[in-house]
Amino acid sequence: MTTYILLINWTEQGVRNVRDSPKRLDAARKALGEMGGNFKEFYLTMGDHDMVAVCEAPDDAVLARFALTLGQGGNVRTRTLKAFPEAAYREIIHSLG
């Protein structure tokens, strides 16, 4: 499975309905699970992003579909980073020669 980091910000609608956010997180976990992925970690954050999630998915298309599904709800906007574990990082750097 591939690891992805989602940088998440509430929209105005999402902030207005912030008390429903835990229910939306539960629904998002379920949706990603049904797509074959999972949440590894989730954080409420301070700074440029309201929340950060570390997720796994079988491939880029699954994660793209998940992020689009989240966006359709109108409560959050996401930015997705594909994450390479340390072993892959070392292999990539070593391949530079």
Rank of each mutant, 00 (worst) to 15 (best):
M1K: 05
M1Q: 02
M1T: 06
M1E: 07
T2Y: 13
T2L: 14
T3M: 08
T3H: 01
I5K: 00
L6D: 00
I8R: 00
N9W: 07
W10I: 05
W10E: 14
Q13R: 07
G14P: 12
V15C: 06
V15L: 15
R16T: 12
R19Q: 03
S21V: 03
P22R: 09
L25H: 11
L25G: 13
D26Y: 14
D26Q: 14
A27W: 08
A27M: 13
R29I: 05
R29V: 06
K30A: 05
A31N: 09
L32S: 03
G33Y: 02
M35F: 10
M35V: 15
M35Y: 04
M35A: 05
M35N: 01
G36R: 12
G36W: 13
G36L: 07
N38C: 12
E41Y: 15
Y43H: 13
T45F: 09
T45V: 12
M46L: 15
D48I: 15
D48H: 11
H49C: 00
M51A: 05
V52Q: 04
A53T: 08
A53Y: 01
E56A: 09
A57C: 11
P58I: 14
D59M: 07
D59T: 03
A61K: 05
A61S: 09
A61P: 02
V62L: 02
V62Q: 05
V62G: 02
L63A: 13
A64C: 01
A64K: 02
R65E: 04
R65S: 08
F66E: 09
F66V: 02
F66M: 08
A67L: 03
L70G: 00
L70W: 03
L70T: 01
L70E: 00
G73N: 10
G74T: 03
V76E: 01
R77G: 05
R77H: 07
R77C: 00
R77Q: 13
T78W: 01
A83K: 00
F84E: 06
P85N: 10
E86M: 08
A87V: 10
R90T: 14
R90Q: 14
R90M: 08
I93N: 00
I93T: 03
I93W: 05
H94F: 06
L96M: 13
L96K: 08
L96D: 06
L96A: 15
G97V: 03
